[in-house]
Design a protein around this nucleic acid. Structure first.
Lengths: 152, 152
DNA sequence: TATTACTTTATAATCTTTATAAACAGTTTA
DNA sequence: TAAACTGTTTATAAAGATTATAAAGTAATA
């Protein structure tokens, strides 16, 4: 089971590096590390999370490098930037299409698969005349941990 | 037609002021002006938009006042805070339930009514165990104006 | 090797938002 | 009415996230 997961994330990283090669984006040690961290990460980290996580391996790395490369990854389509209510953006390695359920108490983000809302896009296109490119949806609530804490 | 709209926004403002009274929030001239601007506004303004729009009437008003009162309005449920990709939050006077279609080229926001996605919340609750409070969805694309501009 | 283009680092600057303290105004209480 | 209290605004500073800039470094190309 975890064996499978290791293989999965290994492949995902390899695919991501291939994408970079094909797009002509240089694969620097920093980029490799940031991607690796994003692929493995089950949390949806902020730029600062990534910066802190890698400062052991790259003591000289600049915050700007993290931001620069997250922008590069986003432009290439490897990474999605999530802007929730809180102060800083969160970054999500793009895999299959899924939505997020966010705990308003502790900030935990859980992935949540749901068959596409294509009809929403179609209706929006029809009503507004826009050329629709994509949509975004999240569900907010309280996770089980926080629900239990409230009882005490 | 516009006659109707005037009445509508007048009523909306009146309702909003009633809500403030009932909640025990003082109605200051600044609050009145901010609410009035929000109700009339068809764009979804940032705090700075509001600040700039009212500096003629209130030359001494502080930016903090705008932020403070937007927070107050949000806590009372009169206003919804929207965090899109761009740098600053946008504020939307709460009327009926609707979604937004956002032009990625010029930032225009068009309202868009769609029957609730209650089932999404139910499924999310079932799958994750969260107590769901609400969800958020937007559709992104290119508006007709910008689509035409691209052709030239 | 020389040149060029890209990347990182370090730092400063910008921008949004929040915090703080003093001045003000409205309301309540004695 | 005077005093006390509470909430509000203002002005300003501070915090935090992100971007811009310039110098130094590194890889790619001719």
């Amino acid at each position: 089971m975890s064996h499978t997961h290791v293989h999965e994330s290994h492949d995902q990283l390899k695919d991501a590096l291939d994408t970079l090669k094909q797009t002509g984006v240089r694969i620097t040690p920093q980029r490799h590390a940031i991607l690796e961290f994003l692929v493995q990460s089950m949390t949806h980290p902020t730029a600062d999370d990534i910066y802190k996580a890698l400062e052991g391996k790259f003591p000289n790395m600049s915050v700007a490098t993290v931001y620069n490369n997250l922008r590069v990854f986003r432009e290439v389509g490897l990474v999605k930037e999530l802007t929730y209510g809180d102060t800083s953006s969160r970054f999500d390695f793009v895999t299959t299409e899924h939505y997020h359920v966010i705990c308003e108490s502790c900030g935990k983000i859980v992935d949540f698969h749901y068959p596409g809302l294509d009809e929403v896009e179609q209706l929006a296109a029809h009503v507004t005349g826009f050329k629709i490119s994509h949509h975004r949806m999240e569900v907010y609530g309280t996770c089980t941990d926080c629900s239990h804490k409230d009882l005490h």
